[in-house]
Deep mutational scan, measured.
Amino acid sequence: STGEEYIAVGDFTAQQVGDLTFKKGEILLVIEKKPDGWWIAKDAKGNEGLVPRTYLEPYS
């Protein structure tokens, strides 16, 4: 699937089932941008889950 690459600007630990845990500096592939501010993203290992958009910045 296609998506946009974003870099994590902080650590995030999953708070509920379906969230994706990530560390600062990780590159995430954003698959869907939901209007509530929680985006669906995939990490380098292929894990998929919800992430808070405030922790992400476009990666170029």
Rank of each mutant, 00 (worst) to 15 (best):
K45E: 08
L20E: 00
A14H: 13
I40E: 04
V30P: 03
T21W: 03
I40A: 05
L28K: 01
V17R: 10
Q16R: 14
V30C: 04
R53Q: 14
T21D: 10
T13Y: 05
T54R: 14
R53D: 15
K42R: 09
L20N: 01
P52H: 14
Y59N: 06
E57Y: 01
I7D: 01
K33T: 07
G10M: 10
W38F: 15
A41C: 10
I31Q: 09
E26H: 11
E5D: 05
E4D: 04
G49W: 01
L28P: 00
R53V: 06
T2G: 04
L29S: 13
S60P: 10
Q16M: 05
N47R: 09
D36I: 10
G3C: 13
A14K: 08
E5H: 02
E4Q: 07
A14Y: 04
L50A: 04
W39K: 01
E26M: 08
P58Q: 10
T21A: 06
L29Q: 09
V17A: 12
I27V: 06
P58Y: 05
F22K: 00
N47T: 11
I27Y: 11
E26I: 02
F12R: 15
K34V: 06
R53S: 13
A8P: 01
E5V: 01
P58C: 05
D43Q: 05
E48V: 12
A41I: 07
G10F: 09
E5G: 03
A44Q: 10
G10W: 04
P35A: 08
L50Q: 14
Y59G: 12
K33P: 04
G25T: 08
N47I: 12
K45I: 05
L20T: 01
L20D: 00
Y55N: 13
G25Y: 06
D19Y: 14
E48K: 11
P35I: 04
G10Y: 03
K23C: 12
G37M: 10
T2Y: 02
A14E: 05
I7N: 05
D11Y: 03
P35G: 10
R53F: 01
Y59T: 09
P58G: 08
W39Y: 13
A8S: 07
L50V: 07
I40C: 14
K24M: 05
G37W: 01
V30N: 01
S1V: 06
K23Q: 09
Y55A: 12
T21V: 10
K45P: 06
K42I: 04
P52K: 15
W39Q: 01
A8Y: 01
D43H: 06
V9A: 12
K24N: 14
D36V: 10
E4W: 06
V17P: 11
K34W: 04
E5R: 01
G46A: 12
L50R: 15
A44V: 08
G37Q: 14
G25A: 04
Y6S: 02
Y59F: 06
V17K: 04
N47F: 05
S1K: 14
K33A: 04
P58L: 10
E5F: 11
G49Q: 01
K33D: 04
G18P: 13
I40L: 09
V9N: 05
G10Q: 15
E48T: 10
E48W: 03
A8M: 05
A41R: 00
Q16I: 03
E26S: 10
G49K: 01
G25P: 00
A8H: 00
L50W: 03
W38H: 15
S1R: 05
W39D: 07
F12C: 15
T54E: 15
P52V: 07
P52N: 15
D36A: 02
D11T: 08
W38L: 15
G25S: 07
K24C: 06
T13S: 04
Q16S: 15
G10S: 08
I31H: 10
E57R: 03
V51R: 00
E57D: 02
K42A: 05
G46K: 13
V9S: 06
D36W: 02
L20W: 01
A44E: 12
T2I: 12
Y59V: 13
T21Q: 09
R53N: 10
P35L: 10
D43I: 01
P58I: 05
W38I: 15
R53M: 05
W38M: 15
G46W: 07
I7Y: 06
D36M: 12
W39L: 14
